[in-house]
Design a protein around this nucleic acid. Structure first.
Ligand SMILES: [Mn+2]
Ligand SMILES: [Mn+2]
Ligand SMILES: [Zn+2]
Ligand SMILES: [Zn+2]
Lengths: 124, 124
DNA sequence: GACTAAACGCAACTAGATTGCAAACACGAT
DNA sequence: ATCGTGTTTGCAATCTAGTTGCGTTTAGTC
């Protein structure tokens, strides 16, 4: 994983984010600075494959990316999307308890790694 | 909402499903019978808007639809997608308990209407 | 400083979703 | 039973976000 200008810019932009960013959102800022959308795209994918960022789909047909880390907000956490305004939020402090059915012996689910909640946000 | 041949076929097909179906999956079966994909698409969207079916995005960039109802499996329930094989499952019996952070006063989340879990399925 | 795999820039392409429009149709009213 | 009108259909075109091919450039190594 080489240290290149586009890659650094992408990572830096993502570090400043408080919610997952889409390729379009990052593109919007970095293309005017002279970077190419395909390069940005491939960097996001590569960084995701390398595990440096996570790639999530929150229900609106857009991939979003966010830096992974050990810091509070950076560790794994549930995400939320407002059905009305589309607002995306990280829920680093919310705990989600998943309980199998009272009577069911074994579920299809072996392990849950990601939780996405949808509903209405405060302002909607 | 008029009762038309394509609309009835779409609804009937969905009633036989045990997991949400994509437009492509429904198309695959109904186009050979003479129905048009755009018509099927619009019916799915219209039925969703009318509240007869729900439209969900489970993380693979494909809209899926399933009949809504009052019966056991038909009421609101969490969904699961396997990160590895892509299997989609309904979890009508799984209860998900969402607890806000211990110290947080108000969250961005006002109301949760849908839950999507991602992870690994039994066979992966 | 030369070498080579990795990364870039530009343009083309894909899949699924979505829409425009004229023709066909469902259904309440006559 | 026929009519009139707003719905719905069928077909083709368009849109969006994602994805890929390829020749050129470059970071990192020797
Ligand atoms: Mn997040
Ligand atoms: Mn379901
Ligand atoms: Zn909102
Ligand atoms: Zn699986």
């Amino acid at each position: 994983m080489r240290s290149t200008a586009p890659r650094i810019s992408v990572l830096e932009r993502m570090r400043r984010a408080s919610a997952p960013l889409s390729h379009a959102e990052i593109t919007e800022e970095l293309v005017p600075l002279g970077f190419d959308r395909a390069t940005i795209y491939r960097n996001l994918v590569d960084l995701a494959e390398a595990g440096l960022v996570s790639r999530v789909e929150l229900g609106d047909h857009v991939w979003r990316y966010e830096v992974r880390g050990t810091e509070s907000r950076e560790r794994e956490h549930p995400h939320f999307v407002c059905n009305d305004c589309g607002t995306v939020a990280c829920l680093p402090a919310v705990s989600v308890d998943i309980r199998p059915a009272p009577g069911s012996r074994h579920s299809v689910v072996a392990e849950v790694s990601d939780v996405v909640l949808k509903g209405l946000c405060e302002s909607c």
